[in-house]
């Protein structure tokens, strides 16, 4: 697994010397800054009778404004992981080094999780801003970040899988966008359907997932789902990378 660590370091190095990293980070913070401002403005103008809803719980998955950028930013972050190596030809030097396909995938996946955390860490300042003017439920905030990490674990795994199967970065980005978009839309079925279908949609819902965590409720059903999808997608990525040899 030492190979995975070497791959992870190179992946992060390549990301943070590329202009893409700074374009992504800046756009991400501008978007979320605006979202946070709008939500804070909304909550300060409207006396919200429900004590459970706060600007922070609204920010962490309480509105579609949380999910829309993720459908775009996750594919942009993950598209280059393996498809970029295919396009530049460096996949050949990488896979002929004495490292296993699993090490390569674990390294790339680990790097994508670090990128995910780097996106979110600056948003802690929003909680600090609220704490200067009102009260913050730090337990719910911690649960929100934990929920975001778990959500990222499966988003990034799906993006990675698409990057392994796609021949180019653009195709990888489109495939990830569609996969995450479908998962997001299926989750909305929770509010539309009835009976078993409603329960299935609720289980898959990233909306329900974040609403639960943002209120400080760590629901293990969502954790099992996140973990299962992440393991499946990472496992399929290893398999797809091995299958490339015989393709």
């Amino acid at each position: 697994m030492k190979g995975a660590w070497v791959v992870l370091k190179r992946e992060l190095g390549a990301f943070f010397v590329s202009p893409l990293a700074y374009v992504v980070l800046t756009s991400w913070l501008i978007w979320n800054g605006v979202v946070f401002w709008v939500l804070t403005e909304f909550y300060s103008r409207n006396a919200v009778s429900s004590g459970a809803s706060t600007p922070l719980s609204g920010f962490f998955g309480g509105s579609a404004l949380f999910f829309i950028p993720l459908l775009v930013f996750v594919p942009v972050l993950t598209m280059r992981l393996v498809a970029g190596e295919k396009q530049s030809g460096t996949i050949e030097t990488l896979l002929t080094a004495p490292v296993s396909e699993a090490s390569v995938i674990f390294g790339k996946y680990g790097a994508s999780l670090v990128m995910w955390c780097v996106l979110w860490i600056p948003t802690i300042i929003y909680a600090w801003i609220i704490s200067q003017h009102g009260s913050v439920d730090w337990g719910a905030t911690a649960a929100s970040y934990f929920g975001i990490f778990c959500l990222g674990a499966y988003f990034m795994a799906i993006g990675l899988l698409m990057s392994v199967v796609a021949p180019t970065q653009i195709i990888a980005a489109v495939l990830s966008f569609v996969a995450l978009g479908v998962l997001f839309t299926v989750g909305i079925g929770e509010f539309v359907l009835d009976g078993t279908a409603r329960e299935v949609c609720a289980y898959l819902s990233m909306w329900g997932h974040m609403q639960s965590f943002s209120k400080g409720v760590v629901d293990t059903r969502y954790l099992v789902f996140d973990f299962s999808v992440a393991v499946l997608a990472v496992g399929l990525s290893v398999g797809a990378l091995k299958a490339r040899k015989i393709g």
């Binding site: 070497v6 791959v7 530049s88 996949i91 030097t93 002929t96």
Partner: peptide, 26 residues
């Protein structure tokens, strides 16, 4: 192995690239 067209990580400095590959090859 030196593949045809010599694919390299273009964003790296030469010594960084070799250090990376050396680490990968233990």
């Amino acid at each position: 192995y030196m593949p045809e067209g010599v694919p390299l990580y273009r964003e790296m400095r030469v010594y960084e690239y070799l250090r990376h590959r050396g680490a990968l090859k233990a």
